[in-house]
């Protein structure tokens, strides 16, 4: 059997056929190597990288979208609060204004009262003073008139006291 196999292999036609088959095998293996090195490997790697990049971009976009939605919500809330805040500030300002106006009015009223009181006191003091002066003048004139009528010098201290008590009695009545 081995002999017949060797005889077959030594046949030039068989030899040539084997040579061509081996050449074709080498050609195909070179083809596989080229495609593996330059097509399949590179392109699959590129596809993977692109897939990963797109995936990460989508994740990033999704995260940004969520962030923007949160920000939008936040801004809307703030916008709503801005109205409330503005209203509150105006109300506070109005209240402050009213309070200040009240304070000013109170102060003015108090000042006016103080001024009035002081004037009243001055008036009263002036009246008292005038009355006292008037009393002194009346006493003095009464003494002078009485001295002229009786043509005699009176005891000034005693008569001044009498006249004064008389005037006081009149004032009381």
């Amino acid at each position: 059997m081995l002999q017949s196999l060797l005889t077959t292999l030594s046949d030039p036609k068989v030899h040539e056929a084997i040579a061509q088959i081996v050449t074709q095998i080498i050609a195909f293996l070179v083809f596989v190597w080229i495609l593996k090195k330059f097509a399949w490997g590179r392109l699959l790697q590129l596809l993977d990288e692109r897939k990963e990049k797109i995936s990460s971009e989508f994740d990033r976009i999704k995260a940004l979208e969520e962030k923007f939605i949160a920000l939008e919500h936040d801004y809307n809330e703030k916008l709503k609060n801005i109205d409330v805040e503005a209203r509150r500030i105006i109300q506070d300002a109005i209240a402050d204004g009213r309070r200040m106006a009240q304070q000013i009015a109170d102060k003015a009223r108090q000042d006016a009262r103080q001024i009035t009181d002081k004037a009243q006191q001055n008036i009263e003091m002036e009246v008292t003073k005038a009355r006292l002066q008037l009393k002194q003048d009346i006493i003095k004139m009464t003494l002078l008139a009485t001295e002229k009528i009786i043509k005699e010098r009176l005891d000034e201290a005693k008569h001044r006291q009498l006249i004064s008590s008389f005037i006081d009695t009149i004032e009381k009545n």
Binding site: Q20, T23, Q24, A27, F28, V30, F31, I34, L35, F38
Partner: peptide, 15 residues
Amino acid sequence: WENPVFSWLIVVIIG
């Protein structure tokens, strides 16, 4: 070597 030549030609062109 007609057939191997065409095979190699394809290998070279596609390569």
